[in-house]
């Protein structure tokens, strides 16, 4: 069963312009791992080298930030909606 993954504008150059992708898997790590296998340019924007989620990426299952659901281990089901958004952050000169 496919899970819809919504891609933000800023990541669409890596998906050939696609705004939504269909993925599958039981966890966020599996779903995003499979779509980044299809679109290798996405991978460094989604994952750190150690396989954790990129610090500057927000990943949501339905309305919930996966940081609070176990990160890459967050469970996803067939009717779930996954949304990716860039984290909006920065700071002053130190």
């Amino acid at each position: 069963m496919a899970i819809t993954v919504r891609i933000p504008t800023v990541l669409r150059p890596a998906t050939g312009g696609a705004a939504t992708l269909l993925g599958n898997g039981a966890t966020i790590g599996e779903v995003l791992g499979k779509i980044s296998a299809d679109f290798p340019a996405l991978k460094p924007q989604l994952f750190n080298d150690d396989g954790t989620l990129h610090r500057f990426l927000n990943v949501y299952v339905n309305d919930d930030d996966v940081r609070y659901l176990g990160g890459v281990d967050a469970p996803v089901g067939p009717n779930d909606d996954v949304t990716l958004l860039p984290a909006v952050a920065g700071g002053a000169l130190s």
Partner: peptide, 8 residues
């Protein structure tokens, strides 16, 4: 020195 928008 840093800011981050609330993700929700």
């Amino acid at each position: 020195k840093l800011y981050e928008i609330d993700s929700k």
